[in-house]
C-alpha cells in the first residue's frame, strides 16, 4: 500500500510542470478584466513554459508542449499550430548550454524571459500578419510582452516553490 502511495506521490510531482502550464493556459483563455486597453493581457503560459524549461526541462517535453499548444489554439480559435510553434520556440531558445548561467540568478532568469518573450511574441505577430494578410498593430504586442515580463516575479515565486517540492522528493528518494 505504501509503495502505491509513494508511486502516486512521485507521479503527481512529476506532472506538476505539466499541470501548472495547463492551468496558465486556461487562465490566459478566461474572459477576465484586461489590464490595458484593446484586450491586451500578459501571457502567463510563456512565463510557465520558460520557467520549467529553464529549471526542469526533463519534466516538460517537446511533445507535451506541442499537444498543449494545439489544444490552446483549438479552444482560442487561433490558427492551429500557432501556439504550439510559440511554445516550442521557447524551448528551442532556452535549451542552450548557456541556460545554466541564466538559471543561477533571479535577474539572469528575468532577463532571459524578457528576450524570449519579445522574440516569440514578435514571431507570433509576424505569422499572424502573414496568415491574415493584414498588418496587426505592433504596439499591443509590445504592451502584452511588457506585462508578461512584469508577471515573472510572482509567477516564478510560485513555480519556484513547486520546483522545491519536486527536488525535495528527488532527494528523499535518491533519484
Amino acid at each position: 500500500m505504501q509503495v502505491v502511495v509513494q508511486t502516486l506521490d512521485h507521479l503527481a510531482r512529476r506532472i506538476l510542470p505539466f499541470l501548472t502550464v495547463a492551468i496558465t493556459l486556461l487562465f490566459d483563455l478566461l474572459p477576465l478584466t484586461t489590464l490595458a486597453s484593446d484586450a491586451v493581457r500578459p501571457s502567463l503560459t510563456i512565463v510557465a513554459v520558460y520557467f520549467w524549461t529553464l529549471y526542469r526541462p526533463d519534466l516538460l517535453g517537446s511533445i507535451v508542449l506541442f499537444l498543449l499548444g494545439l489544444v490552446a489554439d483549438a479552444v482560442a480559435g487561433m490558427p492551429i499550430g500557432m501556439t504550439a510553434l510559440m511554445l516550442l520556440c521557447i524551448r528551442a531558445m532556452v535549451m542552450v548550454p548557456q541556460r545554466i548561467v541564466l538559471a543561477r540568478s533571479f535577474l539572469g532568469g528575468w532577463l532571459g524571459l524578457a528576450l524570449v518573450t519579445l522574440s516569440v511574441q514578435f514571431l507570433r505577430w509576424f505569422l499572424a500578419c502573414l496568415y491574415a494578410l493584414h498588418v496587426f498593430p505592433i504596439d499591443t504586442v509590445l504592451v502584452s510582452s511588457v506585462l508578461t515580463i512584469l508577471c515573472y516575479p510572482p509567477v516564478a515565486l510560485l513555480l519556484g516553490r513547486a520546483n522545491v517540492e519536486i527536488d525535495e522528493k528527488r532527494h528523499a528518494t535518491g533519484n
Partner: peptide, 14 residues
C-alpha cells in the same frame, strides 16, 4: 462566456 483569448489577432469568445 467561458473563454475569450483576447489579444490583437482574434476577437472571438466561446
Amino acid at each position: 462566456v467561458v473563454a475569450d483569448p483576447g489579444g490583437p489577432f482574434v476577437n472571438t469568445a466561446l
